[in-house]
Design a protein around this nucleic acid. Structure first.
Length: 594
RNA sequence: GGUUCCGUAGCUCAAUUGGAUAGAGCAACUGCCUUCUAAGCAGUAGGUUACAGGUUCGAUUCCUGUCGGAAUCACCA
């Protein structure tokens, strides 16, 4: 049994003995003691005054006295303004340290719960950018967290590989590309294709301007611009499976995939299965027809099919056009069902998609539920806020995007410069140094994007780049490498077996660290329930910060008392372990030296 | 216009989901390398939590209104 539960039981016992009336569960509020006060567990006594008929302070004293007298492990207490702060004796803390483990998924027996996590979802007409980075790191980290708590996670991405926007790059390449390809030009495939997408837009705008100059209205100009006509014609050809068009499409997409692969590799993320929109965009019609037949949907006179969501406080939503073709919602319905066929074991899906699509997913899940898919209740839109630049929103067509590859390179370079400046590389081999820059740079970037609550929009200033000091990934990595260094010096045999640890009067810092360590399981659980890596990030930062305090103020290796040194080494080792696990959950590596 | 979300230190973010004196980092300023890595530690300064009401022992958190910002509401994806 863990300490929190033990304290709770004792408090409940105390209350039962002291108060004549039965106290409701919800009125027993135990929370971690705030930093500035002594103690580890705090009972909020205000709600109890209803039962005790005494002041909060008197109530607290009654309970405190009882606990100190009867539990044997609560050393003392203090009362401030109706808050009862309990101090647990040090031998209990040492015992807690002995029993502490980072393993939390104990339900190894029985089938694991299966879940699908979708993230990334790129378009094949342009390279990945900062927004994708948040999406990808988030999706990856959430997958890790779910898996850590014992779930079987299938990571997938849906690739937006068709449609008018893809045809735009194709048209521009055909017209202006002069046969250029990634191999000969030495331009990364996704970047090359992206250039043609931009080129298309440029020409398109020019043509619109010319038409407007001739007196054509803006709307008509946008429709009639000759290059846009060509793109539309190409989309029709593509849909008609014209061999030449398909060939070009396949070729250009393959360039993009090679480029993406490099980018994903550097990010350190993988997928278990890829879905292509070109293979799913026609799905979903049968589902819509089923819904129509069963009366869940309705058909208008022009033949279009709709669903009425006004009871749920939403609008009527189109599901199939009057000409019988699909809309976005149609294919998402189809894809959702397809995935449950591909992975019959999964109980739910997590969609990592920006918050501008919140409405879409609300509707999607509602419709799935209406048609009768029970798993719809376990579908979750992992919605995250946009990453803003100081200049405002990123617009790919206006060239204000922060490119993913460039940004990763930049932070790695920054790590390199900072390391050189501190003269830390002298003892490292070239390979080790390069690997370190990579770990640090990406660690800094990932931590930066993950430490913020996913739901909130966040700001990124490319001018200032990513910090390496303070509340950052490298700070945590540094703490880890410090401990690694310490343990190397000590030698493995110096770390005692848990059973050998003896209690002593702990330093405040030591106790604080143990308390922090014990929060690990709770934090992971919380991060899992809220789909929020930021909870892990915040937690591991606090732990590292606390450990650095110990490092700076208390001798570890040079401690003359064998038992104290043993306990501190054991504690250090555990802190390093938790840091490793937490960083791994964030997709960040933990260097042995830096 | 309807709906949803957001507004916390100069800047970027926290705040145990209604708890104590609202915390960290960056930037500024002061100290600390002759003891395990100073990418660190200790400290100073910085706040009417957008504003006005309400609910109660207690509000950054819940409710109402105002102001400011964002997203969304397509036979687009």
């Amino acid at each position: 049994m863990n300490l929190d539960e033990l304290v709770k039981i004792e408090i409940e016992k105390a209350i039962e003995v002291i108060f004549p009336v039965k106290v409701e569960e919800k009125d027993i509020q135990i929370q971690p003691t705030r930093k500035d006060f002594r103690g580890s567990h705090t009972l909020v006594c205000f709600p109890l005054t209803r039962f005790s008929k005494k002041s909060p302070e008197d109530t607290a004293v009654l309970i405190g006295d009882y606990l100190v007298e009867n539990t044997g492990f609560i050393k003392s207490y203090n009362v401030l303004k109706g808050f009862l702060n309990l101090e647990v004796s040090d031998d209990v803390w040492v015992k807690q340290l002995q029993n502490f483990s980072t393993v939390i998924s104990e339900n190894k027996e029985g089938a694991k719960e299966e879940i699908m996590v979708e993230y990334s979802s790129p378009n094949t007409n342009k390279p990945l950018h900062l927004g994708h980075l948040r999406n990808i790191f988030l999706g990856w980290s959430v997958s890790k967290i779910l898996a850590y708590t014992g779930m079987d996670v299938h990571k997938v991405q849906i690739i937006n590989d068709r449609g008018i926007h893809i045809c735009k790059s194709m048209v521009a390449w055909k017209r202006y590309g002069e046969g250029v390809n990634p191999e000969d030009s030495h331009i990364k495939g996704d970047k090359l294709v992206g250039e043609f997408y931009v080129k298309f837009d440029k020409v398109y705008k020019e043509q619109i301007a010319q038409l407007i100059a001739k007196g054509v209205s803006k709307e008509r100009a946008e429709q009639e611009a000759e290059i846009m006509q060509e793109a539309k014609a190409m989309l029709l050809k593509w849909e008609a499976k014209d061999p030449e068009t398909l060939e070009l499409w396949k070729t250009m997409n393959s360039w993009v995939y090679l480029g993406f692969e490099q980018t994903y590799n550097r990010m350190g993320v993988t997928f278990d299965k890829l879905y292509y929109e070109s293979e799913t965009y026609l799905l979903g019609k049968d589902i819509v027809m089923q819904g129509l037949n069963s009366g869940v949907f309705y058909q208008k006179e022009d033949g279009s099919i709709w669903v009425d969501l006004s009871e749920e406080g939403l609008d009527h939503k189109l599901l199939l056009r009057s000409d019988g073709t699909s809309v976005y919602m149609t294919q998402d319905l189809g894809t959702a069902v397809l995935r449950f066929r591909d992975f019959p074991g999964i109980t739910g899906q997590v969609y990592t998609v920006g918050n501008e699509q919140e409405y879409h997913f609300r509707v999607l899940f509602l419709i799935l539920k209406k048609i009768g898919y029970k798993w719809a209740e376990h579908c979750y839109h992992l919605s995250y806020g946009m990453v803003d630049l100081p200049s405002g929103k990123m617009k790919s067509r206006e060239g204000t995007v922060v490119d993913a590859d460039e940004l990763m390179e930049e932070v790695v370079q920054k790590a390199k410069e900072a390391t050189a400046e501190l003269g830390k590389i002298d003892s490292m081999s070239e390979e080790e140094a390069e690997a370190l820059y990579e770990l640090m740079g990406l660690g800094a970037l990932k931590y930066y994007l993950l430490k913020v609550d996913p739901k909130k929009r966040m700001l990124f200033n490319p001018e200032e780049s990513v910090d390496l000091q303070g509340n950052t990934g490298p700070f945590i990595q540094y703490t880890h490498s410090r401990i690694s260094s310490l343990l190397r010096k000590a030698g493995d045999d110096q770390i005692p077996e848990p059973a050998a640890l003896l209690a002593y009067d702990l330093e405040d810092v030591e106790r604080e660290i143990i308390i922090k360590l014990l929060e690990f399981g709770k934090k992971v659980e919380e991060a899992k329930n809220l789909y929020s890596p930021s909870i892990i990030a915040q937690y591991v930062y606090d732990l590292a910060k606390e450990y650095n305090k110990l490092w700076q103020n208390v001798m570890i290796l040079k401690e003359s008392d064998d038992n104290k040194r043993g306990v501190r080494l054991y504690l250090s080792n555990k802190v390093a372990e938790v840091i490793r696990v937490c960083l791994d959950l964030l997709g960040i590596g933990a260097p042995e030296r830096m």
